[in-house]
Amino acid sequence: MALTETVTPVWTQRLLHAKREVVLLAAIVLIGGFFAVSSPYFLTLDNLTTTLRNSVDLAVISAGMTLVIISGAIDVSVGGVLAVSAIFIGRGFQWGLPAPVIVLLGLAVGTALGTVNGAVVAKAKVPPIIATLGTMYVFLAVLFLVIGGEWISGLPDTLSPLVSGNLLGLPVPLYLIAGVYGVCYLLLRHHAFGRHLYAIGSNENSARLAGIAVDRVKIQVYALLGFLAATGALIYVARLRNVEVNIGTTIALEAIAAVILGGANIRGGVGSLLGALLGVLFIKMIQNGLVLIGVSSLWETVVIGGLLIVVLTADALKHGGPQRAQ
């Protein structure tokens, strides 16, 4: 133990990790520049703030997804959680409940559904991909049960300031994002909860042996994501003032893509909130830019897929090829 070891420069590890956020930032600047040059509308304040307002739900959900992925899990049911929360919000309006009650109702529903996810994963020991796939189907069934194929539309704009309003000259969504990411950052870096997430994602068995209440932490992180999905539902309803049948179908995969782009490792133990946020902005910018330069929005997914492949390949090559299963 007294020998001085020369360890392979792990400052490269940290450099790589930081590098991802830097690379993303550089990519945003680069591609943003391209769009700015190709379309006069891109760099306008109006366009940028609209894009920002459109990114809030994905951004908020991606924050929660980052924490889940860091713990080595995944959640493909967030779209369903968002949808069911949105129905309750919509129904709340229809029942004439006061706005604060509606908000609380929506958040409570989302958190409850998230807890269900957590329980299935932690207590029933079902692997996260299977568990959340299953719960997604169940949640969607609930959605159909309540809506029955019809939209809830014509909702009042009580919540709209969340998305379209301004506070002290800055768009409210900015505060929302800052608030959510700020809290998540504190949880991740400055609270034992974050340590436990990293530990479980790194080596669940070690975490258990070290005395961490693994099951409880898992349920909590899923509940948190559920809470944030409900926040996304509030934003969604605020923005569109309706609840339609196909809401939230792709948001789970987009959030996962953003988090992975941002530097998280699907195996767990590694992840970055800033990276996820940059990933969200990157995705939304591409969606926005493509439309502005006249490229069909149908190419979005191709671009996202291609980017993911590049990023994942770079990651894998840095780690020296296939990780041999233990």
Binding site: L186, R189, H190, H191, A192, G194, R195, Y198, A199, G201, S202, N203, S206, A207, A210, G211, I212, G269, V270
Partner: peptide, 27 residues
């Protein structure tokens, strides 16, 4: 040990030292 975590994190895994600010236990 948790492989992807650093030295202090590993030593204090499950026994983290906290500092309470406004009632919230920060690390």
């Amino acid at each position: 040990l948790a492989d992807k975590m650093n030295v202090p994190d590993n030593i204090f895994l499950g026994q983290e030292l906290r500092r309470t600010i406004l009632g919230i236990p920060f690390l």
